[in-house]
C-alpha cells in the first residue's frame, strides 16, 4: 500500500526539476543555451575517448589540408588534426574559465566580507581595489604572463587578479546592506564569533549574486585567454586552447580562414551560452525584476 506512494515521493524531486523551466517561465533561449553548453562540456570532457588523432602529432605531408575522412576539419600548418585540437582545446579553455571563476570568486568573497564588515579595513582595501580596477585588465594580464612565464597557472592568475576587485565590490555591497539587519545584530548580541557571523549569517546573502558573477567571469576568462594567446602571451601551443589555435591560425588566415573560424565558433558559442545562462540566472534571482513583471 505504501510502496507506490513512496515511489511517487521519490520521483517528486525529479519531476520538479523537469518542470522547473516551465514553472519559471523560461524562454527557449536559455534552454538552447543550456543544451549547447552541455554538449560542449561533455564533448570536451570525453574528448580523449573519441578524437581521431593525437592533437600534437605532426604530419609533415598533410599540412594545411582541407577537410577529409582522415581529418574531419582539415589540418593546421604543422599537419596536426584541427578537429582533435579544437575539442582538446575546449578542455583547457573551459578549465581556465572555471578555474579563474572559482579562484576570483573565492578570494573576492573573503576580501569582500572583511571589507564590508570591518570599517577600518574597508577604506584601505577599497582604495587598493579601485587602483586595481583602474589598471587595464589586458595590459595587467599580459604583463603578469610575460613576467611569470606562459604556464597554465600563470595565465589563470593573470586573468583572476583583474577580476577580484569586481567580486569584492559586489560582496561588499551585499554585506553593507545586510549587516544592519536585525538577525546580524542579534547574532552579535548573542556573542557569536566574528568568523561565524561572517560565514553563517552574511555569506549566504552573497551566494546568489556571486553565482551570476561567477558565470560572467568564467565567460570573460575564456575570452581573455584567447586574447592573451592572440597577443603572444598565452599558454604554450603544446597545450592546445581555443585561443592559441586561433593565434597560430592567424599567420595562415588568408590561405585557410577555417583555422580561426572553427575555434572561434566554438569559443563564441560557449561564451554566448554561458552569458545567456548568467543573464537568466540574474533575472531569476533579482527580486526587483520579479516585482516589476508582476
Amino acid at each position: 500500500m505504501t510502496a507506490p506512494s513512496q515511489a511517487v515521493s521519490h520521483l517528486q524531486p525529479v519531476l520538479r526539476l523537469l518542470s522547473l523551466p516551465k514553472r519559471m517561465r523560461l524562454g527557449v533561449g536559455p534552454m538552447i543555451a543550456a543544451v549547447v553548453l552541455l554538449i560542449i562540456v561533455l564533448a570536451s570532457l570525453f574528448a580523449p575517448l573519441y578524437i581521431p588523432h593525437d592533437p600534437l602529432a605532426i604530419d609533415a605531408l598533410n599540412r594545411l589540408k582541407g577537410p577529409s575522412d582522415a581529418f574531419p576539419l582539415g589540418t593546421d600548418a604543422f599537419g596536426r588534426d584541427l578537429f582533435s585540437r579544437v575539442v582538446m582545446g575546449g578542455r583547457v579553455s573551459l578549465f581556465i574559465g572555471v578555474g579563474a571563476a572559482i579562484v576570483s570568486v573565492g578570494l573576492g568573497l573573503v576580501i569582500g566580507l572583511v571589507s564590508g564588515f570591518f570599517r577600518s579595513a574597508d577604506a584601505v582595501i577599497m582604495r587598493i581595489m579601485d587602483s586595481l580596477m583602474a589598471i587595464p585588465s589586458i595590459l595587467l594580464a599580459i604583463a603578469l604572463v610575460a613576467l611569470n612565464g606562459p604556464s597554465l597557472w600563470s595565465v589563470i592568475c593573470a586573468i583572476t587578479i583583474p577580476e577580484i576587485p569586481r567580486v569584492v565590490r559586489l560582496v561588499r555591497s551585499v554585506v553593507l546592506t545586510s549587516r544592519e539587519e536585525p538577525y546580524v545584530e542579534a547574532a552579535i548580541a548573542l556573542g557569536s564569533s566574528m568568523p561565524k557571523i561572517l560565514w553563517q549569517h552574511l555569506m549566504p546573502n552573497t551566494l546568489a549574486p556571486l553565482t551570476v558573477q561567477g558565470t560572467y567571469i568564467c565567460a570573460s576568462a575564456i575570452l581573455v585567454e584567447a586574447i592573451l594567446s592572440f597577443l603572444g602571451a598565452g599558454v604554450s601551443t603544446e597545450i592546445p586552447t581555443w585561443g592559441n589555435i586561433m593565434a597560430e591560425g592567424r599567420l595562415y588566415f588568408q590561405i585557410k580562414p577555417m583555422l580561426i573560424f572553427w575555434p572561434g565558433l566554438m569559443l563564441s558559442l560557449c561564451i554566448l551560452s554561458i552569458n545567456l545562462l548568467g543573464d537568466t540566472a540574474r533575472d531569476l534571482l533579482d527580486p526587483r525584476l520579479k516585482k516589476r513583471e508582476a
Binding site: 565567460a219 586561433m246 592567424r250 588568408q254 572561434g264 569559443l267 563564441s268 543573464d279
Partner: peptide, 22 residues
C-alpha cells in the same frame, strides 16, 4: 548585445577583413 560580448575582438576584426577587404 549578447553576441558582441561573446565574440573575441580579433575574431570580429578578421571577419570584417575577410568580408569587406578580401
Amino acid at each position: 548585445s549578447v553576441l558582441g560580448f561573446s565574440v573575441p575582438v580579433f575574431v570580429i576584426g578578421y571577419i570584417f577583413i575577410q568580408v569587406f577587404s578580401i
